[in-house]
């Protein structure tokens, strides 16, 4: 099957001032998003997520490399009709009402009046803003704007939806709604590509994720695999052994009057710790397995990146 998005060896640099040095923002970035999957594009702020998404949408041009959407060049107008896009922190025409706003975008697709009305009514209901359809956008709250922005991205019932930080300015209910919409799109066989710097958003929704840091793709894979790849560790809570004795041997995370928390890695680490506690007549209170979350992977990678440089 043709991939929904295929990015080949993208390079992009910016010159922030006329005389300033060029800064490489994307470095040999390649990525494939298959049709029908929900793909998370993860990375800390400034990693190059938004730049990549703008290049995919043809808003910005790469220095080198190509982007294909459904096998066609991304600047192709025909292919754009099959894509929906919600930019990061979208701004809208304040002078339009919610209805006019959606109608404006649907006109760009050349739909008939009757179809437009049906589609807009459906979308307003989907995002729960039917009651505000005739209110000017200048009076909308941030969350409402984000929702109407999402509706705008779905106006053409796209096969590929690209969302840049769709949950960033939403309250928990809004997040839930966006999550449901993404899951629903997935169920209907649509491809969703969305970026985020908040991992919990992604963990629950995505089939696959790519992690981008400093303009490079660090890893791509199923969330389960990515998380499993990284070794688990255990936290052991114990009592009766002074920290002075523990410190040379183990990584002590915290210490209270009768509780010390240490971190050990691997099965053999647990065994060593348990033997150590027995030898020093300590008391084991609990042994907790700790899965490494995406958050930790993130931090690890950033740290590594920092060391590399």
């Amino acid at each position: 099957m043709i991939p929904a998005i295929e990015i080949k060896n993208l390079y992009k640099s910016f010159r922030s001032g006329f005389f300033l040095k060029k800064q490489l923002v994307l470095h040999n970035l390649s990525l494939q998003v298959q049709q029908g999957e929900a793909f998370g594009f993860l990375g800390p702020n400034g990693a190059g997520k938004t730049t990549t998404i703008r290049i995919i949408n043809g808003l910005s041009y790469p220095d080198q490399g190509e982007v294909f959407i459904f096998g066609k060049e991304n600047t192709n107008v025909g292919v754009k009709a099959r894509v929906g896009f919600l930019p990061e922190e979208p701004y809208f025409y304040h002078h339009l009402t919610g209805w006019e706003f959606l109608d404006f975008y649907s006109q760009l697709f050349g739909y008939s009046r009757r179809y437009r009305h049906k589609r807009i009514a459906f979308l307003l209901e989907l995002i729960g803003l039917q009651e505000y359809a005739d209110m000017q956008l200048r009076k909308y709250s941030r969350g409402m704007l984000q929702r109407i922005g999402l509706a705008q991205a779905l106006i053409n019932d796209p096969q590929l939806v690209i969302l840049d930080e769709p949950m960033s300015s939403l309250d928990p209910i809004g997040r839930r709604m966006v999550r449901d919409i993404i899951i629903d799109l997935g169920k209907r066989g649509k491809t969703v590509f969305f970026s985020s710097h908040i991992l919990s958003d992604v963990e629950m929704v995505c089939d696959r994720v790519a992690i981008i840091i400093g303009g490079r793709i660090i890893s791509v894979g199923k969330i389960g695999e990515l998380v499993k790849e990284k070794v688990d560790f255990h936290e052991i809570v114990l009592d009766g052994i002074s920290t002075d004795k523990l410190v040379p041997e183990f990584e002590v995370i915290s210490h209270e009057t009768n509780r010390t928390l240490i971190k050990v890695e691997g099965e053999e680490g647990i065994q060593r710790a348990l033997t150590f506690i027995k030898v020093h007549k300590g008391k084991v209170i609990s042994v907790n397995p700790q899965k490494k979350s995406l958050e930790d992977i993130f931090i690890d990678e950033i740290r590594k990146g920092g060391e590399r440089e």
Binding site: R54, L59, G78, K80, P87, P90, Y91, F109
Partner: peptide, 14 residues
Amino acid sequence: EKRTIYNILSKPIR
């Protein structure tokens, strides 16, 4: 400036 152009240009329009 208000980046509304992102929305428009990502639609099938030249």
